[in-house]
Amino acid sequence: NPRWNRIPFIFLSALSTPKDIRFGKLLGADDYLTKPFNEKDLLAIISGRIARNKRVNALNTKINEAFLSTNIEMKTPITRQREFYICLFLAFWDDRFGPELKRSFPDEKIFPIPLEDIVNQLFNVVTSMYGHNKITKAEGVLLDIKNLNNRGYLFFDSYPDKNERFGEKQYMIAAIAPSINYFHTLEIKEIFIDLSEKIKKRIDWDIEKYWKQIYDLMLLDSIKIE
């Protein structure tokens, strides 16, 4: 049920070997606590997950308010125009110019407003919630962008850069699609971590290759559901 896919799942288990814990996390558990456990540890995990969900809900509200202010005219929902698509993009923060779109795929226009405006709204809303100096704490955020009939998975990271205000170059990797769910994000995050390492090491990379990895995993999931 899409309404429940953000409810945190915590394993509380007597199975405590590293293999058991890895398997639990591969199944999608947000946290894994082994028995015997400390009550304070369990309460801390629950409190942390509740706080994270509140931050994500606040982000959703602010993002949808921001997109409402752009006066988007939605004649036909995008989800009806194209039943299955994904947009992948990379944007950097520049202290002089703000968010700058660096790469995107596909090149064709699939949104009713320019992708640059979407990047600007997403970057500014997330930084307003976390602050520029802590933006990488927003790593791995799944958002509902209702005004675009889409969902977005955002991944923030940075690398050292003494010329930037906070001594680091901040960037956002994002995938936008109508049908991204929590379980997709577990695999997309691994793809983004791999891509982020290439960005940090200044290694050349092919955006279409990464787009295809995400496309394939979501397409496979849609086939299983059918």
Rank of each mutant, 00 (worst) to 15 (best):
E100T: 15
C87N: 10
I46L: 08
Y85W: 11
S222C: 05
D30C: 04
R103V: 04
D95V: 03
I199L: 10
L59R: 00
K134P: 04
N181D: 10
L154K: 01
K62H: 08
W93P: 00
L186M: 12
R151F: 06
I135F: 03
S196Y: 04
I7S: 06
I188T: 01
P36T: 12
L143K: 00
F156H: 05
W211Y: 14
I188A: 00
T76R: 14
W205I: 04
T76A: 15
R49S: 14
I63D: 00
F192G: 00
P112L: 09
L154W: 01
I223W: 08
R151V: 02
I176H: 00
L88V: 08
E73I: 08
P18D: 05
I10H: 06
K189S: 11
F156T: 03
E65S: 15
S104Q: 14
G28P: 11
K75N: 13
D194W: 14
K54N: 15
D204P: 04
Y130K: 06
A58F: 12
G98Q: 03
L15V: 09
E139T: 07
P99D: 05
N181W: 02
G48R: 03
G24Q: 02
I45P: 00
N181I: 02
W205K: 05
K169T: 10
K19L: 12
R82F: 10
Y171N: 03
R80W: 11
I63K: 00
E83M: 13
I199E: 04
D107T: 13
S47A: 15
I188H: 00
K189C: 04
K209E: 11
K25M: 13
I21D: 02
F183T: 04
M74R: 11
M172Y: 05
N120Q: 14
G152F: 01
G24V: 02
L42W: 04
N149G: 03
P77H: 06
N60Q: 08
I21Q: 07
L15D: 15
I225G: 04
M218Q: 01
I223A: 07
F155Y: 07
Y210L: 06
R49M: 13
I7H: 07
P99A: 08
Y182N: 09
L90F: 06
A51P: 09
H184C: 06
I188E: 00
K198E: 14
R3S: 15
A66N: 05
R151N: 05
H132W: 11
D94V: 08
I193Q: 11
L27W: 07
L26A: 13
A174Y: 01
S179Q: 12
R202H: 15
T136N: 12
R151H: 07
T185C: 04
L122K: 05
K109S: 10
T17L: 05
K54M: 11
R6V: 04
L27V: 03
G98T: 04
I207A: 05
A58N: 14
V125L: 06
A44Q: 15
K201F: 12
K146N: 14
N147S: 12
W4D: 14
K198F: 10
